[in-house]
Design a protein around this nucleic acid. Structure first.
Length: 295
DNA sequence: AACACCACCAACCGCAGATCG
DNA sequence: ACGATCTGCGGTTGGTGGTGT
């Protein structure tokens, strides 16, 4: 291995995979004494490990409330939604997935979801359509092939279909930005978003500040597809974005994050700081077949 | 059967922020 | 106020098992 030896090895502390015996010692100690100071724990418990290693082993593997096994569709969608808002804040994301650790979610993202987004032509960091046309080409071609059953051998028709697909994706993203802006209000911190209760998470999330009837009516003007009632899973948690689901592996990724630069453009919406300025929806959303088709 | 390649995931490392004295 | 220590987090590595050739 290419790693330089750390002080733990110099001090004679064990590294590498944990044995069942070590696990048992750690579990029994924490169950009777609590972990207390992690640094002091290994000595007190009789383990030849550093405290950091013990903490990691406990929090990522031995904790009794750890849920193991494959991620459900609901969990996957929740991760996508939260990642679009929070970015790589794995610990914050993990707080909304009971029994899942930040490490597990991070691994799942890196090995599954990131690739999935790339395959679908989306930038995994921004959740926006990739600006790399060639990277997005497979998705565009697949979309083009679906639209109106246009023949494959008609080059011009395919180009048109691709253009339509690109336009639709762009509009969808702009629409998502509008919604995302609502949850990116200056008075709503990242921590607030992270602390939202899970049922409110389905993306895009109506901003919490919209609590009066007036605001509620405004939200009701949105295409209903974005706020379909969530579907509860067996654990009672809700998280879906059913409007985009096209099948097992075809759900579109959730919202892109919103940069500050987007907050003042034509797609921006009013802030929640008390003024009553209604939301401004670009006209093409109101009379565009693409959007009305959802409603 | 043997080898190469790939995907998965447990574990490590280093950094930053929090806490303590 | 300040330095030392502790804790938590995110990025990364590398061992292992599965699959393809």
């Amino acid at each position: 291995m290419g790693r330089s030896p750390c002080h733990d090895e110099i001090n004679g502390l064990k590294k590498g995979p944990w044995t069942p015996e070590e696990d048992q010692i750690l579990v029994e100690y924490i169950q009777t004494h609590g972990h207390g100071s992690w640094r002091a724990l290994p000595k007190l418990a009789g383990l030849n490990r550093c405290g950091k290693s013990c903490r990691l082993r406990w929090t990522n593997y031995l904790r009794p409330d750890i849920k193991r096994g494959k991620f459900s569709q609901e969990e996957e969608q929740t991760i996508l939604n939260l990642h679009s808002i929070l970015g790589n804040k794995w610990s914050a994301i993990a707080t909304h997935l009971p029994g899942r650790t930040d490490n597990e979610i991070k691994n799942f993202w890196n090995t599954h979801l990131k690739k999935k987004l790339i395959q679908m032509g989306f930038d995994p960091m921004t959740h926006r359509p990739s600006t790399d046309f060639f990277a997005a080409l497979p998705q565009l071609i697949a979309l083009a092939n679906l639209i109106d059953g246009r023949p494959w051998d008609d080059h011009t028709a395919r180009l048109l279909a691709q253009a339509e697909a690109t336009e639709a994706a762009a509009k969808l993203q702009c629409f998502q930005h509008l919604l995302q802006s609502a949850s990116a209000m200056p008075n709503i911190s990242t921590a607030d978003l992270a602390n939202m209760s899970l049922p409110s998470i389905p993306s895009p999330t109506p901003p919490q500040c919209l609590t009066n009837d007036h605001d509620h009516d405004q939200m009701n003007q949105l295409p209903s597809i974005f706020f379909e009632p969530s579907v509860s899973n067996e654990t009672g948690q809700c998280s879906t974005m059913t409007g985009f689901s096209q099948g097992e592996d075809s759900s579109l990724p959730p919202l892109a994050d919103v940069s500050a630069a987007n907050q003042g453009d034509a797609c921006s919406i009013s802030s929640c700081n008390g003024d009553e300025t209604p939301y401004i929806w670009p006209e093409f959303f109101l009379d565009d077949q693409f959007m009305t088709g959802f409603a």
